[in-house]
Amino acid sequence: MLSNIVSSQIETHRRFGGVVPEIASRKHVESITLIVQEALTEAGVSRRDIDAVAVTQGPGLIGALLVGVVAAKSLALALDVPLIGTHHIAGHIYANRLIGDIVYPALALVVSGGHTELVLLPEEGVFRIVGRTRDDAVGEAYDKVARALSFPYPGGPHVDKLAQQSEEEIVLPRAWLEEGSYDFSFSGLKSAVLAEINRSKMKGLDPDFAALARGFQNSVVDVVTTKAMKAAAEFGARQLLLCGGVAANRGIRERLAARCEEAGLPMLVPPMSLCSDNAAMIGAAAELKWRRGQFSSLDLAAAAQVSLEEWSV
């Protein structure tokens, strides 16, 4: 990794209490060439040194993806180099490759604002989804609960911090789903938090936000880590890869690390800069295809939904 430039729009979207897709797309068009220029400058390379262009094909916000895909295709045409359409989740998983060697079979726990997935990698570049959320992603649940607890957007980290500080806990239900399932569901938990807040207000009491944050966090952490450990054992994983923007969450990170240590299972987790959305991770995943000569055509289409399994090498 020679450079990894991220232009965050958090400050812009904070004013709207969440990401506004149209504004996100507008900002991307405004900054695209400048960011690419910065990436080259920081890496100390020129346009002519580029051997291939990698871009996120999906999943994501279609309007935002379109800007990246069109720019990447234009760059590939202009520089006459191959194009590699890349899966966003493969990027999150292979961010781990930037900090260490991956040992297969590996199990990845992907937790972010848009995703909660357990992905088995039987071998390099091969992805098998063994569990996924049926409603909200972990990060989404954190942000929704944060709003209920009156934190500004993006509130997930505030809930994590409050939960760490709290001595008290209001115990909330765990959504284990049916026996043997590695899927997740967090919408019921979010509703339970809202119901607790209402119950307190009906009684004329101030809701104990700290105890609620801790109860919410413990429920999430318990379900996520238990399912990850079970899946790792069932599929004979030799390594656990934690990734995605919510991997920065201390609750999840610390409990998973402790459970992996108990089980003697090595765990990899990238530093924060490589957990949140970034371009180096897209490069790391694209490298899988580059080594195999698997390139995309200039007719590559951005897509809000793309199958990770089908993206396998």
């Binding site: 220029q37 720019a71 234009s74």
Partner: peptide, 19 residues
């Protein structure tokens, strides 16, 4: 079309920069 103009502008900027 918002999406349409973004497609043209993104392609044009990138080509102009790369070339």
């Amino acid at each position: 079309s918002y999406t349409g103009v973004r497609i043209g502008v993104s392609a044009a900027k990138t080509l102009a920069w790369a070339w």
